[in-house]
């Protein structure tokens, strides 16, 4: 099957139901996308599929055949993604950092849909857990992107 990740096409001989997360991490060697629960609970594995945030741990790779997938490694090549990363750095969001690839991807998907999200939009989009509790800093970073 064909997988388009970060603009590069990959030809893969792999089970249809292989989780996208592990294809990204193990077949492509892109380890910025994280495993946390494997059950669509934590959001650490969030990637973009055609610009939408998707929890890759429960996404069978066959379901994204031909779609355009973006991982954290290429997020800065996206104009919105680059702004999100800058806001994350400026607002010192990451602590342990483990959840932050997923947080950045979720925020990028949010802003790609709507550059001026209201509080509900943000609540609905930003549901990833952060055990370090960086939620205040995430809110500040998001607010700064809105104003920018």
């Amino acid at each position: 099957m064909k997988l388009i990740v970060n603009g590069e096409q990959h030809e893969l001989d792999i089970e249809q139901d292989a989780p996208l997360l592990w294809v990204i991490r193990e077949e492509l060697g892109l380890t910025g996308t994280k495993y946390g629960c494997g059950l669509a609970q934590c959001g650490a594995c969030t990637v973009l599929v055609d610009g939408m945030a998707v929890r890759s741990c429960v996404t069978p790779v066959s379901s994204v055949d031909g779609a355009s997938i973006t991982t954290i490694e290429a997020v800065e090549q996206d104009e919105v993604g680059a702004r999100v990363v800058e806001a994350w750095v400026r607002h010192q969001v990451p602590q342990c950092g483990y959840c932050q690839s997923g947080q950045v991807m979720a925020a990028t998907a949010l802003f790609k849909q709507n550059m001026n999200p209201d509080e509900t939009d943000v609540q609905v989009a930003m549901t990833n857990y952060c055990r370090c509790g960086t939620y205040n800093a995430i809110s500040e970073a998001i607010a700064s992107i809105k104003e920018a």
């Binding site: 490694e73 997020v75 750095v89 990451p94």
Partner: peptide, 26 residues
């Protein structure tokens, strides 16, 4: 500023789970 802020905002930080060795099995 945190010295690891950018790496952690861009997925570059390597954790134990990301370690890889030649010939490694899982």
């Amino acid at each position: 500023a945190r010295i690891d802020g950018r790496d952690k905002s861009t997925g570059r930080t390597r954790y134990s789970i990301d370690v890889s060795m030649e010939g490694m099995l899982l």
